[in-house]
Structures are given as structure tokens and as C-alpha cells.
Amino acid sequence: MNWLPDDFVHPTLIPLPGGGHHLRPIREADTPLDHPAVMGSRERLWSIYGEAWGWPAATMTYEADQADLLRHEKEIAAHESFNYALFDTAETALLGCVYIDPPEKVGADAEISWWVVDELVGGEVERDLDALVPQWIAADWPFTQPRFVGRGISWPDWLALPELPGA
């Protein structure tokens, strides 16, 4: 059973409120911007995603990140899962990511999480992203029970949920 309708077309450019930033599907070619963004915020990202995903490893090389982004790009094309990168208007800086994944745990039809680089934590761009993501998911995605992991449910509570059969 597919988690998305066969005729679903995923959004390709999502502006943040206030202008100056947007989301778009990540690509392998984004590695020169992604790697420093991830590794520059690695300690905090590990505190969020480490237990659940084992990411990002302290030793993540540029090549490993490039392979990871190629995998994401292929998953997006196949509608298996989605990774949207947060960019400034000119795409000179990758400033965070939004993950939209099929559910692994019972009680949801999608699992969504997101992050921004350390410099943006607590600031206007993070607040704009926090406001945008749930509205965007409700407006443009075919989910009836999206779960916002790390927002609507804590990561420890998510980890404690029962796994979906076959997940």
C-alpha cells in the first residue's frame, strides 16, 4: 500500500512567510552547503535525531553526506520520503531541513520533523518555519493524521510508541 496517492505531485518551492527564505527538495548537488550546515550544528542535531536515527555521526565525511543526499534525492523522486532544505533566497546558505516520512509508529499517516542551524535557533526564521510547516502540511499534503515529531510529541515519547507492522 502506498502512503501517498499515485497522482500526488509534491511541492517544489515553498516560500517562508516574510520572504527571504524558502524550502525546496534537497539534491545531491546541495552537499557543499549541507555538510557545513549539519556539521556546524552537529551536537544539537545529534541531541535531537541521534537516538532515533543515529544522525549525524561525529565522523560524517563530505562523501558520506553526499551519498546521503543522493539517497534523499532518489527517495523524493520515488515518493518514498521527502527532505526539504531551507535556503536563503539566493541559495547561498542551507539553513535547515524538513523531513516528511511515511510513519514508522502507530497512530499517524506521516511523520514530520525539522531543524534549523544553531545560529537561527530561537530567531525569526525558526519561528516562521515553525508556523509554516503544520499549515503547509495541512494545505498541500494528503495526510489526515500527520505527527510532528519533536513538536507535537517528544522524541522519547515517539520512540516509545509501538512500531507499525513492517516498518
Rank of each mutant, 00 (worst) to 15 (best):
L70A: 15
G123Q: 12
I76L: 12
S154H: 04
P5Q: 09
V98P: 01
H35I: 08
A57G: 09
S41Q: 04
P5A: 08
W53M: 15
W158I: 01
G19V: 06
D30W: 05
D68R: 07
P17K: 07
R27H: 10
P25V: 00
I153N: 05
D88G: 02
G123E: 08
E111Q: 11
T92K: 14
W115C: 05
D68V: 02
W141Y: 14
A108Y: 02
M1C: 11
G20E: 10
E126D: 01
G54S: 06
P32D: 02
A85T: 08
P142Y: 00
E104H: 12
P156I: 11
F8Y: 13
A85D: 07
P17G: 10
V116H: 03
A77Q: 10
A90Q: 14
G18L: 01
F82V: 04
G96E: 05
M60H: 09
H79D: 12
N83Y: 11
L33C: 06
E28D: 09
E104R: 15
V116N: 02
L159V: 01
Y84K: 05
L4V: 11
V106C: 13
M39E: 12
V149S: 00
L23Y: 09
A108E: 05
F82N: 03
S113V: 02
G50D: 06
V9T: 13
T12D: 14
L129V: 07
A138G: 12
